[in-house]
């Protein structure tokens, strides 16, 4: 049994993200939206590019600083060593100091959180990034070396395949966790970014509709109507409103026809009255889920 809110969401946006619930330490359940596979891949690729850019910059700086003064092999070694450090510290550093966000994740709008709703601990950040070596960098290396010479091709293919199994872990669990997330108890979500819009109602509802008329609809229809009222004005929206207005008038047996210019105004007044009625009913423990609800009849 899904809730009305869920039903409304699915009705309005059939391809919405997958949602999960976490419970804050205060005991309030919060809905989070899981990041899509594409977003996560995108964020990783961005970070990978940044990583490579950082390395190139570093090499250039090294060449610039000590290119002629020091043994070339030493420079090369320092560069390799620093590259190794950067690769292993980049994600840990950013996820710690930017609170679960790396530059790539930030651009894509993702964030790492604790799966159970607790604080994101340092150990978790470190654990999920140690695994990255196994999940991302080794398979990348293995894939890149398939074309090379030196060892038997099928051995390399088998290795690459085996390593890819780790890389593809997010496809095999419902929370889309990679190995690191599994180990650290974290998951990656899409950052929320909704702004508060103006309220659609005045504080008091007018008494022009009868209770019987208001009983015609439930929460589901109310929320769909709200969405329609909030939609930006366009020819399409106007047409829809017109249509909805006619249907409402028919359903509640509204005596006078509503002129097209007053459609929006009428719908607003009806929305206000309906919401006031349904909220009061809910307060009394009678929740009208939708127009077919039989509560309190």
């Amino acid at each position: 049994m899904i809730s009305v809110n869920e039903r409304t969401a699915r009705f309005l946006n059939p391809v919405a993200r997958v949602r999960r619930e976490i419970v804050t330490p205060e005991g309030v359940p919060l809905q989070v939206e899981l990041a899509d596979y594409g977003e996560r891949l995108g964020a990783f690729l961005l970070d990978f590019v940044f990583l490579i850019l950082t390395n190139i910059l570093l090499y250039l700086a090294l060449i610039f600083v000590g290119g002629w003064a020091v043994d070339r092999r030493v420079m090369f070694t320092i560069a390799l060593f620093l590259g190794f450090l950067i690769r292993n510290l980049y994600f840990v550093y950013f996820e710690l100091s930017w609170r679960g966000v790396t530059p790539g994740k930030r651009i894509v709008g993702l964030r790492v959180i604790d799966r159970r709703g607790g604080p994101l601990l340092q150990n978790a950040v470190i654990a999920r990034n140690i695994m990255r070596e196994l999940e991302a960098f080794l398979p990348l290396g293995a894939l890149l070396s398939i074309g090379g010479t030196g060892s038997v091709l099928w051995e390399r293919l088998a290795l690459a395949l085996w390593l890819l199994l780790f890389a593809l872990l997010p496809f095999f669990n419902r929370d889309r966790m990679r190995g690191g997330d599994l180990l650290a108890g974290t998951m990656v979500i899409a950052m929320p970014k909704r702004r508060l819009l103006a309220d659609l109602v005045e504080v008091t509802a007018s008494a022009e509709f009868t209770e019987r008329q208001l009983r015609a609809y439930g929460v589901f229809e109310l929320q769909i109507l709200e969405e329609l009222l909030r939609r930006p004005d366009s020819r399409e929206t106007m047409r829809l409103r017109q249509e909805v207005c006619e249907r409402v008038c028919r359903k509640i047996e509204w005596p006078d026809p509503v002129p097209p210019r007053e459609t929006l105004d009428f719908l607003r007044r009806f929305y206000t009255a309906e919401r006031g009625f349904l909220e009061r009913e809910q307060l009394y423990g009678r929740r009208h889920e939708d127009k077919n609800s039989t509560v309190g009849r």
């Binding site: 919060l30 964030r111 929320p192 970014k193 909704r194 349904l278």
Partner: peptide
């Protein structure tokens, strides 16, 4: 029953929580 308000508060609480 204001869906927008609920969604907004949900987001606000989550952001603050994070």
């Amino acid at each position: 029953l204001d869906r927008h308000l609920l969604l907004y508060l949900e987001d606000l609480a989550l952001r603050a929580f994070l």
